[in-house]
Simulated assay, not measured.
Amino acid sequence: MRGFDYESIAPEDDDGFLIGAKYLTVASLEYRYPITDKWKFAVFTDVGTATDDFSEELSSSAGGGVVWASPVGPIRFYVAKPITNEINSFAIHFMIGPEL
C-alpha cells in the first residue's frame, strides 16, 4: 500500500514484533487527470490490511503523483501519507511498467 513501508502492516506478537499474515486485502481508488498527451496527474486513496483473521484495523493512505506514458510503459511517481497509522510522515513510491 502506498504510504506505508514494505511489510509494515501486519499482526504483532506480544512483544510488538510483526509476525506476518496469511491474507492481504487492498482496495485502491485512483483518478488520473491528463496534463499533456504523455503526462497525467494522479490522486488516490488506498485501504487495506494484512491479517490472519480479519480482526485487524484497516490501514488507509492518500496522496498524489504524476504518471508518464514512456516508450517502455508507464512510469509512476507518487507521494503518499498514511491516514490511520502515523508511523511514517510521508512515503515516496516509484514504479515502472504496467499495473498488474
Rank of each mutant, 00 (worst) to 15 (best):
M1P: 15
R2M: 01
G3P: 00
G3K: 01
F4P: 03
F4G: 00
D5M: 08
D5P: 13
Y6D: 11
Y6V: 12
Y6C: 11
E7F: 08
S8T: 04
I9K: 01
A10C: 05
E12F: 09
D13K: 02
D13I: 00
L18S: 11
L18Q: 13
I19K: 07
I19Y: 04
Y23E: 12
Y23N: 15
T25S: 11
V26N: 13
A27M: 10
A27L: 09
A27T: 11
A27S: 08
A27I: 08
S28P: 07
L29N: 14
E30W: 05
Y31A: 13
R32C: 02
P34L: 04
I35L: 03
I35G: 02
T36G: 05
T36H: 01
T36K: 03
D37H: 09
D37G: 06
D37N: 12
D37R: 09
W39Y: 13
K40W: 10
A42W: 03
V43K: 01
F44W: 02
T45R: 01
D46H: 02
V47G: 01
T49N: 15
T49A: 09
A50F: 14
T51H: 15
T51K: 08
T51C: 10
D53H: 14
D53T: 02
D53S: 05
S55A: 06
S55N: 12
S55P: 07
E56K: 08
E57N: 12
E57G: 03
L58G: 15
S60F: 14
S60A: 13
S61L: 00
S61K: 00
G63D: 03
G63W: 11
G63A: 05
G64S: 00
G65S: 01
G65R: 01
V67N: 02
V67A: 04
V67Y: 05
A69D: 13
P71Q: 07
P71Y: 06
V72Q: 09
G73F: 11
G73K: 13
G73W: 11
P74T: 08
P74H: 04
I75D: 08
R76W: 07
R76T: 06
F77W: 11
Y78K: 04
V79F: 15
A80I: 12
K81N: 12
K81V: 10
P82S: 11
P82Y: 14
I83G: 06
T84I: 03
N85H: 08
E86Q: 15
E86H: 13
I87G: 11
I87E: 10
N88G: 04
N88W: 09
N88D: 03
S89F: 11
S89N: 07
F90D: 00
F90A: 00
A91S: 06
A91T: 08
I92C: 04
H93F: 11
H93C: 05
H93I: 14
F94A: 11
M95G: 12
M95E: 14
I96S: 05
I96W: 10
G97V: 11
G97K: 05
G97W: 06
G97M: 06
P98V: 15
E99C: 15
L100A: 15
